[in-house]
């Protein structure tokens, strides 16, 4: 039996951060979405950084959940940045014809935070 992992959402200044564990199963992916929405409500954050640098495989379920989550975050007034996507994952996601909705992307967590702070400053 596979043990699904807990998802921790932390708040850094006004931004939520989640680090996806390696090889996330469907339950872990769905839990991420739930936890993000709860945290958005609780902290009134202006954005989410979802780090997937440990993730080897992004299939259609994960991609769809990311896109949905980004949409929900947007409805709550926030912006989503996906950080740390591996090149092999980027190639595969593109070839599968998947999109990440309105989520932005950044090479790593530092750049993701810079991006969110940048955008927040201008608005």
């Amino acid at each position: 039996m596979t043990l699904e992992e807990n998802i921790t959402v932390i708040k850094v200044r006004n931004v939520l951060m989640v680090a996806m564990p390696a090889e996330p199963g469907d339950l872990t992916v769905s839990t991420m979405q739930e936890q993000v929405l709860r945290a958005m409500e609780k902290y009134e954050a202006r954005g989410l950084v979802l780090d997937i640098s440990l993730v080897d495989t992004v299939d259609s379920f994960f991609a769809r959940t990311i896109a949905e989550t980004a949409q929900m975050v947007a409805l709550l007034g926030g912006l989503t940045v996906i950080s740390g996507m591996r090149p092999s994952v980027a190639i595969t996601v593109t070839q599968l014809g998947l999109t990440l909705g309105n989520a932005l992307t950044a090479l790593n967590v530092d750049r993701a935070l810079d991006l969110l702070m940048d955008i927040a400053e201008r608005s």
């Binding site: 080897d56 495989t57 299939d59 379920f61 591996r86 092999s88 595969t92």
Partner: peptide, 17 residues
Amino acid sequence: GITDVTRIVTAASELAR
């Protein structure tokens, strides 16, 4: 190679699903 492994695993994930 790593990219082909990712492709194969992702296709397998889709079909298993």
